[in-house]
Amino acid sequence: MDVFGSVAELYEKERPGYPAEVADAIIAYHGGVPASVAEIGAGTGKGTEVLAAIGAPLTCIEPDPRMADLLSAKFPQAQVHVGKFEQWTPPPGGVAALGCAMAWHWLDPVTRNAQARDALTRGGVLALFGHRYGYADARQAAAIRSLLHSLDPTMKERPADWMYHDVMAGGEFADVRVERFRLDVPLTRDRYLALVRTLGPFLARPPELQQRGLDLLGRLIDDFGGTVVLDLGTSLTLARNSAGVTP
């Protein structure tokens, strides 16, 4: 997860935030404002904006100190734990709500559901949310995806609602459900390329491949008039700690 520290400031500037309705949905599912909230992989605070709006005492867990520095400055009211979720000790009895924005895939798939359950109170709420970057123009979407595949045929996109299916398969939680939100986000060529530079699959590639990809994407966007309109889909998976919950 600490791959993003090298672009922490760019990440904070260019990554889109989350709809305010996500906080409302978490509160409604919980049945009121939870007594405490913790966030896994808080980064620079994109998801923290939503979780802070819930209005409960907030703990943010972030392994990269460069990201954590920006997070602390932005949310001085939050308690920031610099380290991995697996190394964090929850308070006695657990937290009432545990959020995770675009970081669930960084956790061990074998143990993440059980660890999340163990961090929650009896009946506590797990809230996983993240973006799926689509494109409003179908031709543009096809051209961009074809270009990326030509650069790296091994690149794969996670299935839609994969977090929901992961929690369901884990069997640790009850009343699992998913809510969806969407928004059109127009970006100039330069803003789009800046966003690409913050994405995990991009950062995982060698520098020469990164630069080639940016050059080719820039030319492609120019051919489309210099603008990209993202079809930004946000999914929210909600689940309840089955301990103490009547089936």
Results as ranks from 00 to 15, higher is better:
206 P>N: 01
184 D>V: 12
196 V>W: 00
193 L>C: 00
198 T>S: 00
171 G>H: 04
200 G>C: 12
194 A>G: 15
179 E>I: 01
192 Y>I: 00
167 V>R: 00
191 R>C: 07
201 P>W: 08
179 E>Y: 09
216 L>W: 00
207 P>V: 12
177 R>H: 11
179 E>Q: 14
170 G>L: 03
210 Q>T: 06
214 L>T: 03
200 G>V: 12
184 D>G: 10
214 L>R: 01
182 R>T: 14
176 V>W: 06
169 A>E: 13
169 A>T: 12
198 T>G: 00
181 F>M: 04
215 D>R: 08
189 R>D: 11
211 Q>Y: 08
209 L>S: 14
216 L>G: 00
205 R>P: 04
216 L>C: 02
207 P>T: 10
190 D>Y: 05
176 V>A: 13
181 F>D: 04
180 R>N: 12
191 R>E: 15
186 P>F: 10
178 V>F: 10
200 G>H: 11
178 V>S: 14
197 R>C: 06
214 L>I: 06
185 V>F: 07
204 A>L: 14
211 Q>L: 13
180 R>Q: 13
209 L>F: 05
202 F>A: 07
207 P>H: 06
181 F>Y: 15
194 A>K: 07
215 D>H: 08
207 P>I: 09
178 V>E: 13
207 P>E: 09
204 A>F: 09
183 L>E: 15
175 D>L: 14
205 R>D: 12
203 L>R: 04
182 R>Q: 14
185 V>E: 08
201 P>R: 04
203 L>N: 07
196 V>I: 10
188 T>A: 09
171 G>Y: 02
197 R>W: 00
172 E>F: 03
178 V>C: 15
168 M>K: 15
172 E>I: 02
179 E>F: 10
204 A>H: 10
181 F>T: 07
169 A>M: 11
215 D>M: 09
187 L>W: 09
179 E>V: 05
170 G>S: 10
184 D>W: 01
208 E>K: 04
189 R>A: 10
171 G>R: 07
194 A>W: 03
215 D>F: 11
173 F>R: 04
173 F>Y: 02
174 A>F: 09
188 T>H: 07
209 L>D: 15
183 L>Y: 12
197 R>K: 12
196 V>P: 03
205 R>G: 09
214 L>G: 01
185 V>L: 15
187 L>V: 08
215 D>T: 13
216 L>V: 02
211 Q>G: 13
171 G>V: 02
197 R>Y: 01
196 V>D: 02
193 L>A: 01
200 G>D: 12
170 G>N: 07
191 R>L: 05
170 G>I: 06
188 T>I: 07
191 R>T: 09
215 D>V: 13
